[in-house]
Structure formats: C-alpha cells, structure tokens
C-alpha cells in the first residue's frame, strides 16, 4: 500500500506502530506483543497492517498471518462501537449463559463473531473472565455485568445505543 494515499490519521497510527516495533528492537520474538499493540492502535489487524509488521520484522507475511489466525484474541475483522462478550466459561455455562448468548444473537440478528450492519454492536464469546462468582457474566466494552438473565439482555442493549 502506497503511503502517499494515507490520511494523516492513518499515517499517525502507522508511525506509532513503527516506533513501538523499533522500541522492541525489530525482534521476531516480540511479534505477539507487537500484534497486541497494533490491534490496540487500529482496533483490528487488517492485511495491510500485517504486511507492514512482516516487513519491519523481516519475516514472511505468512508467519505473521499464522500467528494472527492462531490466537483467538486477534481479529482481522473490524469490530463495532460496542463489543459485547458473553462468557461461555464453565461456571457461566452451567448457570445458563448459552441462553443469554442466544438472546443477544436473536435481538441483534447476528451470529457470535459478527458485527451488526450499522457497525454498532459486535457479539463475541469469551472463555472465562474469572468473575465466576457472578456467573453468568457478560462484558460490554470491558464493563462487566454479573448475574445476567435473558430478561436483562434488552436492558443492557438499551444502555448502549
């Protein structure tokens, strides 16, 4: 991708990433840390970003892609304004989190792992956030809601519009 077509905002993002990679000494074994940083900057890891990282680390893009696709934390899809994560850890599961997930899925009209067409909500599942005492648990943009019920799904969505 030609750098000259970039908007100043995008350019600033790449600059920030470049600085971070340099601070890690352009070392291959820092790849996961770099990907975390890149996802923090861009919100996701599109192909261009992966190519950029591969070039800076002097490794094949396939290596970067292999790592991105291996770990569930990394995503190549742009996420919505509100990321809803329903915990499917065992403690939440035995207390009915699957029903809550289905309710979100129905209300939003999307399957887990997808974003609504208006770009507002992304529905994800997560394996245990460690708040098992409050099971079932859901998170919206990092804020945790404990003891969730099918009925509370609508109320939670009301909060985020």
């Amino acid at each position: 991708m030609g750098k000259e077509q970039m908007s100043p905002e995008t350019q600033a993002k790449y600059d920030e990433l470049e600085q971070f990679i340099a601070s890690k000494g352009n070392k291959e074994h820092e790849l996961i840390a770099i990907l975390h940083k890149a996802q923090g900057i861009f919100g996701y890891l599109p192909e261009d970003v992966q190519r950029f990282i591969a070039k800076r680390l002097n490794v094949p893009v396939s290596k970067v892609f292999g790592v991105v696709s291996f770990y569930s934390f990394f995503t190549m899809k742009k996420t919505g304004k509100y990321v809803i994560r329903v915990c499917l850890g065992t403690a939440c599961f035995v207390r009915g989190s699957e029903k809550i997930l289905n309710e979100f899925s129905e209300k939003l009209g999307i399957q887990p792992g997808n974003t609504t067409a208006d770009g507002l909500y992304t529905l994800e599942t997560v394996r245990c956030v460690g708040a098992c005492g409050l099971a079932p648990v859901i998170q919206v943009n990092g804020k945790t809601y404990g003891n969730a019920t099918v009925q509370s799904v609508g109320q939670i969505l009301e909060e985020y519009k």
């Binding site: 996961i32 770990y71 394996r127």
Partner: peptide, 8 residues
C-alpha cells in the same frame, strides 16, 4: 511480562 493472546 509477556502476554498470551487467547489459546488454551
């Protein structure tokens, strides 16, 4: 400290 990235 090194971060994992979600892989059991």
């Amino acid at each position: 400290i090194k971060y994992g990235a979600g892989a059991f």
